[in-house]
Simulated assay, not measured.
Amino acid sequence: MLSRTASDLYWMSRYLERAENLARMLDVSYSLSLMPQDGRGDGLHELAMPLLITGTLDDYRERHGERLLHFFALEAANPASIYSCLGAARASAHAVRGRITADMWENINATWLDIRGIAEQGLNRYGMSRFCEWIKERSHLFRGATYGTIMRNDAFRFIRLGTFIERADNTLRLLDARYEMAGDQADAASDGTAHAYYQWSALLRALSSFEAYTEIYRDAPGARHVAALLLLRADVPRSLRACTEEINQILASLPGTNGRQAQRLAAEMDARLRYTGINEILDGGLHAWLTEFIPRVRELGNAIHSSYLEVI
């Protein structure tokens, strides 16, 4: 497969996954911002979470004042917005129209046309929660069309590779941001307050892992159990461990020897998570562990780019 084609497929799926992740994050942050904030302001600290994760806080302050939801959902000038991600995904899909199926193309093209209409209508009229649910639904439809219609060839592998690289990065950043925002309450298994319960529950719901948590643990959500679930459980689809297992398997299945560096990094990450316990992570500090692992995912993404996607 040509590097340019592989790159378009890879980034098409990354941008779609990023749009879904942003929708999940915005929905949770918006819901939590409506709750009483224990005297810590009017809830804007919850709505600032997407800005902290994506590194766009300063740009937002300069441009938009308090229009945060629009900035992250529908602002065309913000490259990190859902609108921009879907536009980039549609452009990549158009470039590889002959390598994806009609069902996949029709889904992503219709999604792009629909969000342009929503942008004209505005979030106030459409509704924030409804918008986020629509984004997640469109992402599920695209994923279903991909699984159900495309051949299991290199195109499929690069699509899946982009999905899991983006998902791994998002899980790490969401957990780190929620841990930091929990502050002094973060290290307790549960501080017994409704606010702490809803904060950790919101994170689990953002990653579609709340039902998995209640099936495994009896305690109220706290840093230890949530971190163990989202980092080390291979049977939780959006966990870091599940993502690294998929990445490792996909890279091992790609032909040729160009990807040895990426394959080595993926195998090292997978082995580290396989043989690491939650006590080892917490003993050194969860925030320190997360901030050390996030660059590893970025390094793996760079290795994938230089091995397979760089156009010469």
Score class of each variant (00 low, 15 high):
residue 42 D to S: 13
residue 57 L to Q: 14
residue 47 L to C: 04
residue 40 R to Y: 05
residue 62 E to D: 14
residue 64 H to T: 06
residue 43 G to W: 00
residue 33 S to L: 01
residue 45 H to N: 09
residue 44 L to S: 15
residue 55 G to Q: 11
residue 32 L to V: 02
residue 34 L to E: 04
residue 40 R to L: 09
residue 51 L to H: 11
residue 38 D to T: 12
residue 42 D to Y: 10
residue 64 H to P: 00
residue 44 L to Y: 12
residue 55 G to P: 08
residue 35 M to Y: 07
residue 56 T to M: 13
residue 35 M to D: 05
residue 57 L to Y: 10
residue 31 S to A: 15
residue 61 R to F: 04
residue 58 D to C: 05
residue 64 H to V: 05
residue 61 R to G: 04
residue 56 T to C: 09
residue 59 D to Q: 11
residue 37 Q to Y: 06
residue 53 I to K: 09
residue 58 D to T: 11
residue 38 D to W: 11
residue 53 I to Y: 00
residue 60 Y to D: 00
residue 47 L to D: 01
residue 65 G to D: 12
residue 43 G to M: 00
residue 58 D to R: 12
residue 39 G to N: 10
residue 46 E to I: 01
residue 43 G to F: 00
residue 65 G to S: 11
residue 48 A to Q: 09
residue 43 G to R: 01
residue 40 R to E: 05
residue 63 R to S: 08
residue 45 H to G: 03
residue 50 P to E: 00
residue 60 Y to G: 02
residue 62 E to G: 09
residue 40 R to W: 07
residue 32 L to K: 05
residue 54 T to L: 15
residue 46 E to T: 02
residue 34 L to G: 06
residue 56 T to P: 01
residue 52 L to S: 13
residue 34 L to T: 10
residue 51 L to T: 02
residue 38 D to G: 14
residue 62 E to Y: 09
residue 54 T to F: 09
residue 49 M to W: 01
residue 31 S to T: 12
residue 34 L to H: 08
residue 47 L to Y: 03
residue 56 T to G: 06
residue 65 G to H: 12
residue 49 M to L: 15
residue 43 G to H: 01
residue 45 H to R: 14
residue 47 L to M: 13
residue 65 G to Y: 08
residue 41 G to V: 02
residue 49 M to P: 01
residue 60 Y to F: 11
residue 37 Q to A: 05
residue 52 L to T: 10
residue 52 L to D: 08
residue 54 T to A: 15
residue 50 P to L: 04
residue 44 L to G: 09
residue 53 I to C: 04
residue 36 P to G: 04
residue 58 D to Q: 13
residue 51 L to V: 01
residue 52 L to A: 11
residue 45 H to L: 06
residue 53 I to P: 01
residue 44 L to Q: 13
residue 41 G to Y: 07
